[in-house]
């Protein structure tokens, strides 16, 4: 007799467990779907998303800091020196370094952002763009023209959260 009761109890408990689960799925079923049908609809990545590195060519002085600090050795830079007229009247001609080649191999890149941080002349920026997959690995090597095109997609830096220290220069 006692055995019977416990069997009944167990059955009731099982049924309750099952129904509890079904209630959750039913409730979810009635809610709108959260999935985004990607190629047709798109979610905007956050401003800070590290999607692709953009290059502002005129800021680059070929100092090689980014290529040196890169842990993956995926930045290749070449340049040459040129004489430019002086900024002021009567001054001496300046020698400037001009960028010939600036390649980032995104097949190697780990998206760590060290190059962007070490750049002393603000030539590299993060852009949240992410749609640059290629069918061949060789095409993931972006040259300076391609990297320059990304510059248009670089967002304006967003304000910081309450309590953040207001930064001075740098």
């Amino acid at each position: 007799m006692g055995n019977n009761v416990s069997k009944k109890d167990a059955f009731a408990k099982h049924l309750k467990g099952m129904l509890g689960g079904l209630r959750v799925t039913l409730r979810t079923m009635l809610k709108p779907a959260v999935t985004v049908q990607y190629p047709h609809e798109q979610e905007a990545p956050p401003t800070r998303a590290r999607g692709v590195i953009a290059l502002l060519e005129e800021n680059c002085t070929v100092c090689m800091l980014c290529a040196r600090q890169c842990p993956d050795w995926c930045i290749y830079i070449e340049g040459h020196k040129e004489k430019r007229p002086a900024r002021r009247e009567g001054g001496k001609d300046r020698t400037v370094s001009v960028l010939d080649r600036f390649d980032i191999d995104y097949a190697l890149c780990m998206y760590c952002g060290i190059c962007v941080e070490v750049c002393p002349f603000d030539a590299l920026h993060w852009s949240p763009e992410f749609e640059y997959s290629e069918s061949s690995i060789a095409h993931l090597l972006h040259d300076k023209d391609k990297l320059g095109e990304w510059e248009a997609t670089v967002p304006v830096a967003e304000p910081l959260e309450i309590g953040a220290e207001v930064k001075g220069k740098k």
């Binding site: 070929v62 090689m64 600090q69 890169c70 340049g79 040459h80 020196k81 370094s97």
Partner: peptide, 23 residues
């Protein structure tokens, strides 16, 4: 297997000595 890409790779002006690059 691969040379370090961080070596200074800036061609000097013709007739100019290679300057010591200071960081």
């Amino acid at each position: 297997v691969k040379p370090w890409p961080g070596l200074v790779n800036v061609e000097p002006m013709p007739g100019e000595d290679v300057e010591e690059e200071a960081e």
